[in-house]
Design a protein around this nucleic acid. Structure first.
Lengths: 244, 244
DNA sequence: CAGTGGTCTAGACCACTCG
DNA sequence: GAGTGGTCTAGACCACTGC
């Protein structure tokens, strides 16, 4: 919060409020010059704010016609391109979130080495947890962090649960983007026990690598989701791409 | 192609070329004023072009430091938020694309009605195809179009294969965005036959609804992918979102 | 400190939609 | 034709990074 919010951010919030208040007809926003006057900024600033909202999918701009709210996209649950904290996802799906720690270890990187830019002999911290919805396990997640990132002493309990706080507090690292590969899998013996589902149940499986601002991999995760609890949705816009 | 490309598009292409040519050190792009001069435009235009590339994940901008190429993201295959034509996907994965028509029908909407904003008794055209990689079936796809959209006479063969051309030519409709839900499933008897894989093989399953510029649903598709042939990847950026 | 990207402005002209 | 969003410019100042 060190920055005061930029005018663009203020405009974004302002327009979000307008939308939430449904304060116009036919889901048609005021014109750009109008919004500029309303928020006391220039049209360029407003246009940038509208771009943010358009990218979010909240509004649609139509050349010559106006800018419109897209209630449809607004009503989607978890968007695959966005979703972030486990607990938030579970709450969003309408359940009470919880965590069950499974195990943790300090061990050599082995198979995880390449994805994290390590040598197989380098040490990593791995922690496995299940995340609960109304006390039923719905996500199983293994997080792997290079041990050399640790900057401070810590209690092991800090690794019982989501690991982002640990990364921030004890490693002074922040994930700025991640690359996630999505697979369909079926529950084997182990997964069926962890997620209390039948062997052969289809599951979402994500392999996720998180990178810091310096573009170094700092965390690798393997995640299994019970699809009955989560609907992952993607909004794809048909940008006429110029691909060489 | 009615438009001549905008200056922003030209700048985007120009910078893409620069990146492809690796014509600078440390993956650091020329500064914005420099690029503006190089491409004969203003800095604002360049910044817009860079935004496009940043959104694409191709570059990373660092305040005070410069703009850098992200080779990592560049090397990803199919991105789930982008991918579009079946044949392109198959080519991208390194195979020779092909199509095998399965069946088509003119029938009542039934179960498909709600997603397409129809009544169950309204008529729809449905067509089912498999898409081939080196002659092996790797995608099975059912497309459903409201029959009332058809504006012109057509030959049935036009529905043997991808349906976007049909939508454009015979319905004068264009998909501008779609909403896709992603599920893991396992192949049953029917799917295993269609995709020549074992019963129980995990598959990607997408339920996709396409919308036109007027935000009306114009096509619904059910798609099954052999994961052995496709890696679906998502790049998620940690925008510090202001969520109310 | 010089140079970078981030923010913002005021104004111009164009392309499109709609009544 | 009036009004909308789309494109583009020239210039100002700020915030940050690196040497």
């Amino acid at each position: 919060m060190q920055h005061s919010a930029s005018k663009v951010d203020q405009a974004v919030d302002h327009i979000r409020d307008l939308i939430a208040a449904q304060s116009f007809q036919n889901d048609r926003l005021p014109s750009e010059p109008m919004l500029a006057e309303l928020t006391g900024t220039s049209r360029a600033t407003i246009r940038q704010a509208l771009s943010v909202l358009e990218l979010d999918g909240l509004i649609v701009r139509k050349h010559g016609a106006g800018t419109f709210v897209n209630r449809r996209v607004q009503n989607i649950g978890s968007r695959l391109e966005e979703v972030w904290k486990y607990s938030e996802m579970i709450e969003l799906a309408g359940y009470k979130p919880g965590v069950q720690h499974i195990e943790m270890a300090l061990r050599s990187a082995g198979e995880y080495a390449s994805g994290l830019g390590l040598k197989p002999a380098d040490e990593v911290i791995s922690t496995a947890n299940t995340f609960l919805a109304n006390d039923a396990p719905v996500i199983y997640c293994i997080d792997v962090i290079p041990a050399h990132l640790v900057r401070q002493a810590y209690r092991e309990e800090e690794l019982h649960g989501p690991v982002y706080e640990f990364l921030a507090k004890r490693c002074e690292q922040q994930v700025v983007y991640n690359i996630t590969e999505v697979f369909p899998v079926v529950a084997d013996e182990k997964l069926s026990a962890l997620l209390s589902c039948d062997v052969g149940t289809p599951l979402h499986y994500f392999e996720e690598t998180g990178f810091n601002a310096a573009d170094e991999p700092i965390i690798y995760s393997e995640e299994y989701y019970r699809p009955a609890y989560f609907n992952f949705t993607v909004v794809r816009k048909m940008t006429t791409r110029s691909r060489p």
